[in-house]
Simulated scan of single mutants.
Amino acid sequence: MTMVSLGDLAQSFLLKSQATRLKRDADRITGALASGRVADVGAALSGDLSRLTADSRARAVTAGYQSAAREAAAQARATQAALDLVGGAAQALVSPLLRASQLNLADQVALAGEEARGRLQTALAALNTASGGRSLFAGQAINRPAVAESGVLLAALRAELAGATTADAAMARLSAWFDAPTGFAAMAYQGGIALEDVAVSATDRVWLGVTAADPALRAVLKGLTAAALIEDPALPLPLDESKTLARLAAEALLTGGERVTDLAARLGISEERIDAAQSRNAADLLTLELAQAEAIRSDPERLAVELEAVQTSLETVFAITARLSRLNLTDFLR
């Protein structure tokens, strides 16, 4: 019978190789125990990665919807705050205008007109609000202000009202200018068409398409500009007509304020849908994350058994290596 023996160098190399392999196995097992994940995903899933890939893709898509929902929620909140400012400016001016319309005092009319110019600037500033670098009321023209400044707006209206001798005539011209495509839309509105509905989940698209050209906001601006011009030198109306114009402006602001409230309510519905979509997205992300974790979760009991076996084998290799390192001729001949 032929005997095959290993020389000392070959034997030493074999033991070192076994020790290295066993250490590598021990590192793999302890890493899997620490992370709770298998080290070789492909082997754990028998090479079938389709489910894991599908879950990863679904997570990426849902995370994208969640990001869009967060942006939409921030935009809706900022828009609501701006609408509150516009509505507040309209509401605050109604009482001074009605008071001016009832008192036979030119100074009271002048004071109401001065306050109206300040309220107009407040409303225009609110309509030019930007959030996250996006103009809120400019529609798809997100990189520019929605409306012109008050000086430009009032200058255009002074030209439009030239020659008007009664409050009714002045208000009729104002209404026509704000409604005509060649009026407010062409000379004061600087935005674009309304934004498309925003997808905030796989099944939900919400409306955020309010612009400064919305009829509700134009109604408020009409009342504010009418009030700002009740004592303007370009519109030299008699005191009685100025008082009438103050009353008409107050009525326009009341109507416009109600329409802005309706607009805010519609936006509030979108906010509720965004919140609901965010909750569903969060739940879907958690479900997908748990499914992925379960697919690649390590088995601690099996790993503990494997680690014990590796440690035993490693101890055996170390013991043999130590014994061989102490071997001399006398021990070899025994």
Rank of each mutant, 00 (worst) to 15 (best):
I193N: 10
G223M: 03
F178G: 06
P145F: 07
P181F: 09
T211N: 09
I230P: 05
A185H: 06
I230D: 01
L161M: 12
V147T: 15
V152R: 14
E231Q: 11
V210W: 05
G223E: 03
R158T: 06
L221K: 06
R144H: 13
A188Q: 13
A188E: 13
A156Y: 02
P215N: 03
L229V: 02
L153W: 08
A167M: 02
A202T: 12
A159R: 09
V147E: 15
V200R: 01
E231D: 15
A162G: 07
D179I: 08
Y189N: 01
V147H: 14
R173T: 00
A202L: 13
L208V: 15
A186W: 05
L208Y: 09
F184Y: 15
A212W: 01
A172F: 00
A185E: 11
G223Q: 04
A216C: 10
G191T: 03
G192E: 06
A202W: 11
D197T: 14
A155F: 04
A185M: 06
D204Y: 03
D197R: 15
L221I: 05
T166P: 11
R144C: 12
L153F: 12
D168Y: 02
G223N: 01
T165V: 04
A227Y: 02
I193K: 06
Q190E: 15
A164G: 07
A199Q: 10
L224T: 07
L195E: 07
L174V: 01
D232F: 07
R218S: 04
F178T: 01
E231K: 08
D179L: 10
L154K: 04
A148S: 15
Y189S: 05
R144N: 13
A146H: 12
V147F: 14
G191C: 03
I230W: 01
A228S: 14
T182R: 08
A176L: 06
A167G: 04
D204K: 04
A180T: 10
A164V: 06
R218Y: 03
V210L: 13
E160H: 03
L229Q: 03
R218H: 02
A226M: 02
W177F: 14
A146P: 14
E160F: 03
L217A: 05
M187Q: 12
T225D: 04
V206K: 13
G151D: 14
P145R: 07
A185Q: 09
R144T: 14
V206F: 08
L195G: 07
E149L: 13
D232W: 04
D232H: 05
A159D: 12
A155G: 11
A185F: 03
A159T: 11
G191E: 04
G209S: 10
L153V: 09
A199L: 08
G151C: 02
P145S: 09
N143R: 08
L221T: 06
A227T: 02
L229H: 01
F184L: 11
F184Q: 09
L224H: 10
L195Q: 13
G191K: 07
R173M: 00
D232Q: 07
A180Y: 10
A227S: 05
V206N: 08
A170C: 03
A176Q: 12
I193P: 11
R144K: 15
F178P: 08
D179W: 05
T203S: 15
Q190N: 10
